[in-house]
Write a protein that binds this DNA or RNA. Sequence first.
DNA 1: TTTCAGCTTAAACAAACGCTTGATTGAGTC
DNA 2: GACTCAATCAAGCGTTTGTTTAAGCTGAAA
Lengths: 237, 237
Amino acid sequence: MAVTAQNAEVVIDPRGESTRTRILDSAEYLFSEHGVNGASLRTVVAHAGVNTAAVHYHFGSKKGLLEAVFARRTITIAEERLNLLEECREGEGRPPLLQQIISAFLEPGMRDATFARLRARMAADASDETRALMARYFDHSSGQFLLALAEALPHLPPRDLHWRFHFMLGTMVYTMANPRRIQALTNNACDPSDMEASLDYLVPFLAQGFEAAPIPNAPTNIEPMLKIDRSKPHEEG
Amino acid sequence: MAVTAQNAEVVIDPRGESTRTRILDSAEYLFSEHGVNGASLRTVVAHAGVNTAAVHYHFGSKKGLLEAVFARRTITIAEERLNLLEECREGEGRPPLLQQIISAFLEPGMRDATFARLRARMAADASDETRALMARYFDHSSGQFLLALAEALPHLPPRDLHWRFHFMLGTMVYTMANPRRIQALTNNACDPSDMEASLDYLVPFLAQGFEAAPIPNAPTNIEPMLKIDRSKPHEEG
DNA sequence: TTTCAGCTTAAACAAACGCTTGATTGAGTC
DNA sequence: GACTCAATCAAGCGTTTGTTTAAGCTGAAA
């Protein structure tokens, strides 16, 4: 617990640390609200109440700041995903239920609506750099969940499984990105910023989709293999 | 008919029209590749081989250029959607099949991969302006498809229907936006730029999801109504 | 008290941004 | 042949971008 503002300015280094986290908080908010290109460093430092050079002192560059924003939330998301997946396995029946796996994958990433929106923006920005950044932090847990899903759906060919995993990412990202659009479309009846309610509708929808029959005709060539089981969750850069 | 340049440069005004469409083509490509903020007017005019002032002469501003890019493709997409929906109704059984409706909704928007990517980018950019632009061009056809879906799924409460329609938009947009990510995840086995193959996997997945049982507990209040049936597909601005 | 690294500051840098200007071109009209 | 006018051009407008500089401040160690 910490006290703030007028009195004590929290625990550790009251100067450096508060500036750092204030920059991170402001950047996370403004990047998610206006996009990384759309939010300038000057608006970030104005929002954080710090100097322009502080960004470059602490993070080196705007790109470094983005990676720091991303890393701060992503590492815990990936950890919580794997923890929840572990709980699924320990639960009642040995092969975990499909809905449990899906929920374990989605829930940690949807708790924080602000960061979720930033992720959605970055997912839409298909540049090589951004894709590499996201892959670096998410590929491991994605691979683990592909394994778990394959276990829960043993009859499903890997090709179909991969497509449907991709579709699941899409619904998740879009729901995170666009709370307002569905609200407008439904006269404010559906509120995706209520993440719990979103999951109530999203998880059964996805589970049902995953359980659809495989697509019969293989148009071109043979099925691919799963590409997974790299031991390190991510590596610093 | 007019003749120009070396031989014949096609039909109408050989000066104005080719410049206009060259700007539109370059802007569509560069906006979709680097984002609207990420692609400057200077790179657009350099790619198009025209002068900077030509953009402002023909489109007024960068925002006007974006809207022109958007309008050119969107109007035909909305038309083709409604045509395909009409064909669904005329087909065999009177109540059109769920998969037919979904396919009619998705297919026209996924033919052009470049513009599809731009749409995905704009969908992730949740600014009021962008959302208003997309709503202006798409709300009518979306409303019609919500009606058709409600007809095909008479047992499904509107609330569930709206959520699932939202999820459908998500998978569509994400699949359009991120061809490379699923390719990397599956060792190039899944290629979303092959739109026909994408649809083969996407439509049954979504149809199955739509047919899931309704979510039982209504957490807060009463179901909303459908908000549709505005006669004009869009109005110029 | 002096020293010194850690951190913050105001000010400025070159480059890139969207947009405007005034002159120039060339086909159509009288 | 003079005139009109949409269309294009080179050049530059003022502003904002990410980044750097050099000086100043602060709190703890010596």
